[in-house]
Deep mutational scan, measured.
Amino acid sequence: QNEKLANELKSLLDELNVNELATGSLNTYYKRTIKISGQKAMYALKSKDFKKMSEAKYQLQKIYNEIDEA
């Protein structure tokens, strides 16, 4: 289960640069939040902690959705 979550989180991290570029014309909230979420996700992957990875995955998905809707 950890392996599956780690792969999903890696996949979301692969999209980080594209989504970060998409924040160029948006409010600074999005820029700041996506950077923080990305850092948390990288830390969670290194720690291999299921709870941290779950939270990081949720945060990344949430900010990606917010950027898409903005």
Rank of each mutant, 00 (worst) to 15 (best):
Q1F: 10
Q1S: 11
Q1P: 12
N2R: 12
E3F: 08
K4D: 09
L5G: 01
N7K: 13
N7I: 12
N7E: 12
N7S: 11
N7Y: 13
E8P: 00
E8W: 04
L9W: 02
L9N: 00
K10P: 01
K10S: 05
K10L: 10
S11A: 13
L13Q: 00
L13I: 08
L13W: 03
D14G: 07
D14L: 11
D14W: 07
E15N: 11
E15L: 15
N17R: 14
N17C: 15
V18F: 11
V18I: 10
V18C: 13
N19V: 14
N19R: 15
N19W: 15
N19A: 10
E20M: 15
L21S: 06
L21T: 06
A22C: 10
T23R: 04
T23M: 07
T23P: 04
T23N: 06
G24H: 15
G24R: 15
S25H: 12
S25F: 10
S25Q: 09
N27K: 08
N27W: 05
T28E: 15
T28K: 12
Y29I: 04
Y29W: 07
Y29Q: 03
Y29T: 03
Y30W: 09
Y30S: 04
Y30A: 02
K31A: 10
K31I: 06
R32T: 11
T33S: 12
T33Q: 15
T33W: 14
T33C: 15
I34E: 02
K35S: 06
K35C: 12
G38S: 12
G38Q: 11
G38W: 14
Q39E: 11
Q39D: 08
Q39Y: 10
K40Q: 09
A41G: 03
A41W: 02
M42G: 04
M42T: 05
Y43G: 07
A44W: 01
A44V: 02
A44P: 01
A44Y: 02
A44E: 01
A44T: 00
L45E: 01
L45Y: 07
L45W: 07
L45H: 03
L45G: 00
L45Q: 03
K46W: 09
S47K: 06
S47Q: 07
S47H: 06
S47A: 07
D49M: 03
D49A: 02
D49T: 02
D49V: 03
F50Q: 06
F50K: 05
K51C: 12
K52C: 10
K52M: 12
M53R: 01
M53E: 01
S54V: 12
S54Q: 14
S54W: 10
S54T: 13
E55L: 09
E55T: 06
A56Q: 00
A56N: 01
K57N: 03
K57Q: 04
Y58I: 10
Y58K: 11
Y58A: 12
Y58H: 10
Y58C: 11
Q59D: 11
Q59L: 14
Q59F: 14
L60T: 00
Q61L: 11
Q61F: 04
K62E: 05
I63Y: 01
I63T: 04
I63R: 00
Y64F: 11
Y64H: 04
N65R: 15
E66I: 06
E66W: 10
E66D: 05
I67Q: 03
D68F: 15
E69H: 10
A70F: 08
A70D: 03
